[in-house]
């Protein structure tokens, strides 16, 4: 069974009054979800590199220790990069939060079930890796509470947010990663290349 929450409402809540939050999204549905909320200079969307959203967020978080970084990705993408949870936990950044929009499906490829539809518990995995604030969220109040937590900063945190199966309409952010990279850096006051 997939979860009860509607993914676009979840992502909109996580990004509500986002302030100077920096966002990395994972290949697939979460990139469309973030674009559906609003394109933003502080967003970096992955259109490729499956399994690498969390590692990208870690490099960014270490480079920008004064800014809060959020990685929003899907369960299939997270399953491909589970080692990165160990890397994050052992590095221990104090400005990195992870939100997995978990529909228990590979939504982009025909709704095939992921392992989270079966025996796999991503929040338990994150906890066992050493991210002590790891939670599974199944109601909207939990999303609101997690939003407050991730904006507040502090030790890394992880949430697997159980959402409904099914794909909302695609909302596409810029697909030119070079432009988005420049734009992201410029918004941080950084130069070219």
């Amino acid at each position: 069974m997939s979860g009860p929450l509607e993914r676009r409402a979840v992502v909109a809540e996580l990004l509500r009054e986002r302030g100077d939050l920096l966002l990395v999204t994972g290949l697939g549905g979460t990139t469309w979800d973030a674009a559906a909320v609003a394109d933003h200079d502080n967003n970096f969307y992955l259109w490729g590199g499956m399994g690498l959203a969390v590692a990208t967020g870690l490099g960014l978080a270490l480079a920008q220790p004064q800014r809060q970084v959020l990685v929003i990705t899907g369960d299939g993408e997270m399953l491909m990069g589970m080692g990165s949870l160990a890397t994050v936990a052992n590095r221990g950044p104090t400005n990195l939060a992870i939100a997995v929009i978990d529909n228990e499906r590979y939504g982009e490829t025909g709704e095939q079930l992921t392992h989270t539809a079966g025996t796999t518990d991503l929040a338990a995995i994150a906890l066992a890796n050493g991210i002590s604030d790891s939670r599974e969220i199944t109601d909207f109040d939990g999303v609101t509470t997690y939003r407050e937590r991730l904006h507040a900063g502090g030790d890394s945190c992880f949430a697997a947010i159980k959402v409904q199966a099914g794909n909302p309409t695609m909302v596409l952010p810029p697909r030119d990663g070079i432009m988005v990279k420049y734009r992201f850096r410029a918004a941080l006051g950084l130069g070219g290349v």
């Binding site: 590692a55 990208t56 490099g59 960014l60 270490l62 920008q64 850096r185």
Partner: peptide, 10 residues
């Protein structure tokens, strides 16, 4: 990926 994120952050 970490190197890409680092570069995004300067």
């Amino acid at each position: 990926a970490l190197a890409a994120g680092a570069w995004l952050g300067g």
